[in-house]
Computed example of a mutant assay.
Amino acid sequence: MPRLDTPTDGALELISFEIAGQEFCIDIRSVREIRGWTPTTRMPHTPPYVLGVINLRGLVMPVIDLRRRLGLGETEASSRHVFVVVQHQDRVIGLMVDAVQETFLVDTALLQTPPDMDCEPGATFVDAIIPLEGRMLSRLIVAALLPAHERLAA
């Protein structure tokens, strides 16, 4: 199924990235920037998937190990990793991924509802599966990735 080369009313612009050998994507409108990996400062009493915080031009921003958040194992952070800085409402957070792949336009008609996997309540991170050029991308819900206390505050 071909990608779209020009935006239309039924198109979404997405950015894809790799985590643990799998492809995921999010809406490009939630991405503020992509930055290289930098060490984080750990914070006490945070969930295990929160790596810590970094200073982003004067803004103290939490960073999440997205692999761990999605239940795909723990990342051994290194300089090859990338932070995708996303914004949801007034919250800015870094998502550590293995690699950013591409931005692309996709027709909304290609989005398919993910199958019911009997997940525990509140653990739904994927709202669509996109079969694209022989690949399967899972579209993530940015708001669902935030730690629970941050989602309530947002």
Score class of each variant (00 low, 15 high):
T46M: 15
R151G: 07
R151K: 15
M61V: 15
V86K: 04
T8H: 10
R151L: 06
Q112L: 14
L152I: 13
R42F: 08
A143R: 15
G58Y: 08
R69W: 02
L14R: 02
M117A: 15
M61L: 15
R32N: 14
T6I: 10
M136A: 09
H88K: 05
L105H: 04
G122Q: 10
E150Y: 05
P62D: 02
P39Q: 07
F17E: 00
A109F: 09
F17S: 00
G73M: 09
D5G: 10
L12F: 07
I15A: 07
A144T: 01
G10I: 06
L110F: 05
E18Q: 14
V142F: 03
V97Q: 05
D98Q: 10
R67Q: 14
G71Y: 09
I19A: 03
I64N: 00
G73A: 11
R151W: 10
V63Q: 02
S78E: 02
Q89S: 15
P114M: 11
A11Q: 06
Q101N: 12
D127Q: 07
F17A: 00
G58D: 10
L140C: 04
T113E: 15
F24D: 04
L12T: 08
R139F: 07
G73T: 10
L95K: 01
P47C: 03
L12P: 09
Q112V: 12
A123M: 14
I54H: 07
E150G: 00
V63I: 13
A109M: 11
E76H: 12
L51W: 02
C25S: 14
F17D: 02
T38I: 12
I26N: 06
E76K: 13
A144S: 13
H149M: 07
R35V: 14
V85E: 05
T8S: 15
L56P: 07
I141A: 04
R57D: 11
L4S: 09
R135M: 03
W37M: 12
D65S: 03
P44I: 08
P121D: 10
R80V: 04
H45V: 03
P47V: 13
T41I: 11
P44T: 11
G58F: 07
R29W: 05
R80Q: 07
C119L: 14
E13S: 08
E13W: 03
L59H: 14
A77T: 12
S30A: 08
P115G: 11
T40S: 05
A143C: 06
I64S: 00
I26D: 06
D118A: 15
P2H: 13
L132G: 00
L105V: 04
E133T: 03
R29I: 07
L59S: 14
D90P: 09
L56S: 12
D65P: 02
F24T: 01
L66N: 02
Y49G: 01
L140T: 04
P7H: 06
V84Y: 00
L95S: 00
L152R: 12
T41V: 12
V63T: 05
R69V: 01
P147M: 06
G122S: 09
S30L: 00
R135L: 03
V85S: 02
M1Q: 08
G21C: 05
H88A: 05
D98S: 13
T103P: 01
E33H: 05
M96G: 01
